[in-house]
Amino acid sequence: MSVTHTETGTEVGTDTVTWNNKALDEIAANDAGRPVLFANARVLTMDPLIGTLPGADILLVGALLVGIGPGIVTAAGDDNAIVVDCTGMTVVPAVVDTIALAGGRGQRADYVGTLTPGNTGDLLVVPDSLAADVASAQATLLTRPEEVRALVAAGQPVLWSGTDAPGRATAPEAGIPAAQDLSNSPRIGVWIDENGFLHQELTPDGRYDETRGGRPHAYEGRYWIDGDRIDYLDDLGFWAFGEFRGGELRHAGYAMRLGARA
């Protein structure tokens, strides 16, 4: 097979295209918390303060983006960073913020998915020729995914060289999940708000039953717990959610405690 090595680190052959495969192998084997540096890229941050950066570096530590701008690569050796050479590439946020694209964000803090230090490391790497702006770069993922050099979610590769990255996360199966076995969950019982208006009973079979203002069975349905999140599917057909925080169950503006009131 004929192979050509380009200045971007891409190998083009008759039946394969690879890009920074050595770096990908290092990322896949990274169990020591090594930083990952996407270097020498044109970066469209979508951050109104930072803007567009030519020839910039993006430093990820775990799931977080911790640094962005020119010159970070000079410290890569000191930090034992994994370096991904992005010469000839453009990096944009992987999260689509159509309101920001339309100029509808009034405050910098309102922007969703910008490449800003402190934000989650969600980014997309495509060739410069496919990235006239953020919208066209993001459209490449949907229309020409084989051209995507990297899609990274929370610091972990999802796509690399247009194919699935090793060990990538996969989407949950579509459809309503089966009932969970919650017989040993410490969250089973009756959750009651501070005024005693809302009583929400969670039963081990994955059902909930709400009493509101003394009105029994105001809402009933199924629920699922995932970490500190609870999702509800009411028998009427609507979905809702809540969060467990510091001994409280927060749902629809209410803060409830387990067995807080009789």
Score class of each variant (00 low, 15 high):
R187Y: 05
P48K: 08
L236N: 13
G214E: 11
A76V: 03
I68P: 14
H217V: 00
I27F: 03
L65Y: 00
A154S: 11
V134A: 04
H217R: 11
V17W: 09
P70T: 13
V3C: 08
Q156S: 14
R250P: 04
Q156K: 15
A41V: 11
P48E: 01
G69P: 01
V12G: 09
I50C: 00
V148E: 10
I58L: 14
P127V: 01
I99V: 13
G242H: 05
Q156Y: 09
P186A: 00
V190C: 13
S185D: 10
T74N: 07
D164A: 12
S183L: 02
V158T: 14
T120R: 10
V61N: 12
D128G: 02
M256Y: 05
V95S: 12
D31T: 11
D110L: 01
T98N: 10
L142D: 01
D31S: 13
R105G: 02
V126H: 09
E11V: 10
L141P: 03
A100Y: 01
A23I: 06
I82R: 06
P157C: 06
N20I: 02
R250D: 12
A29H: 03
G121C: 03
T87Y: 14
A179M: 06
A81E: 07
V158N: 07
N21A: 06
P48R: 08
M1A: 00
A131H: 14
I82L: 00
R215C: 04
Y219C: 07
D234G: 08
G51K: 02
P157W: 15
A63E: 12
F38Q: 09
A23V: 08
T143E: 05
N184V: 02
G259K: 05
Y232L: 02
N184A: 13
V190D: 12
R229H: 06
T170N: 08
D128R: 15
P54I: 04
D226T: 12
